[in-house]
Write a protein that binds this DNA or RNA. Structure first.
Lengths: 202, 202
DNA sequence: GTCTATATTGAGATAGAC
DNA sequence: GTCTATCTCAATATAGAC
């Protein structure tokens, strides 16, 4: 909950050991995304970190806490995007386009964390709590889609909840292939998606 | 590999015990999707089946084989859709629309199997083999998108590979929420998706 | 086709020294 | 902040009887 939500892009701490919690988290989330959370053992994390297993427990109380920290990072970002949009002026269609764009930017900025979030199934208390926050976010977007539809800005023949899910299905699928280091910028990507889905270029 | 690919919708075998391999598989895949493959133990399957753990090993050699059988079921369906489209007449845009529609139908028809396929990360040999088949499918669709673009049927300013990924991102996201028992038929769903993504109703 | 053992491995986590 | 050693438990899979 007290996650540092200002993205201080630190220059990759020290030479090798001497980790802090964020450093551990970064490596852990990468491993979780490669192998899946359950398939990633503390031993595997220790290997990647160049540490012993027990050293990890100096930084976090459990494997579960690593997951909780990662999911907070993703959810804080998405909820921030929603708050920014709620205060924005314009039609519902404008605000819908804005929240989609913001979501793409958050996803690109916090890609590993959001990737992990989207794979959570609700096995543990931590996962269920994250799913609940995610559902609240989804509902807020669906409400925005409904508003835009009532404005006449969207086809009226499709269920807004379905449209919202499809739109976010498209955006969320970015976690499967998007490479922030590649040539495609998050802004261009958002343009493509908005053009494809809402025929609203830029 | 020798999976029965004609969907014989059997009326749910016998009263309770006396399972065959397909019956085991059905229950296993449901559990894998609820809890994740790794988080699902043989013990949990045994409980759901009302069997002992060891009884399961009479039907399959390993937990891994259950996964392999399930992934074949999904991939056989998708590859079948692709073959059907390759033989179809019409423009590339027509064939693209057709393969998207067929993919939605396969996904709805074999929902649990496709759901499982989309979550595979490549941890084991079985998973890597499945991912390779899936990539071949994705490439074939991307080629179709490129063809349609060259025909002038699609916006030319976006990378066809990106468009293909976004289109399938949308379709694949169905596994997150679509309920085949609900009011929305697979055909209506395909209509909505094609309208949203290709502005080609029906 | 199913059962009751049981073998064996690897997991998450802790104790306590450096 | 990290280590070695260890505890404890649950997992996959097997053996062999019914």
């Amino acid at each position: 909950m007290q996650v540092t939500d200002t993205r201080t892009a630190e220059p990759l701490r020290r030479g090798r050991p001497g980790y802090d919690q964020r450093g551990i988290l970064q490596v852990a989330v990468a491993a979780f995304n490669e192998h899946g959370y359950d398939a990633t053992s503390i031993g595997m994390l220790a290997e990647r970190l160049g540490l012993s297993k027990s050293a990890i427990y100096h930084h976090v109380a459990s494997k579960d806490e690593l997951l909780a920290l990662a999911l907070d990072e993703a959810l804080d970002g998405l909820e921030g995007a929603l708050r920014a949009v709620e205060e924005a002026p314009g039609t519902a269609a404008d605000r819908l386009a804005l929240v989609l764009r913001e979501a793409v930017l958050v996803l690109a900025d916090r890609l590993p964390y959001v990737t992990l979030l989207l794979r959570v199934r609700g096995n543990t208390e931590v996962e269920r709590a994250a799913l609940q926050r995610r559902r609240a976010f989804d509902h807020a977007v669906a409400a925005l889609v409904a508003e835009a539809r009532d404005e006449g800005a969207l086809r009226a023949d499709a269920d807004p909840a379905v449209v919202a899910r499809l739109l976010f299905g498209m955006i969320n699928s970015l976690t499967e292939w998007y490479d922030p280091a590649g040539a495609l910028t998050p802004d261009d990507l958002a343009d493509t998606i908005l053009a494809l889905a809402l025929r609203t270029p830029a």
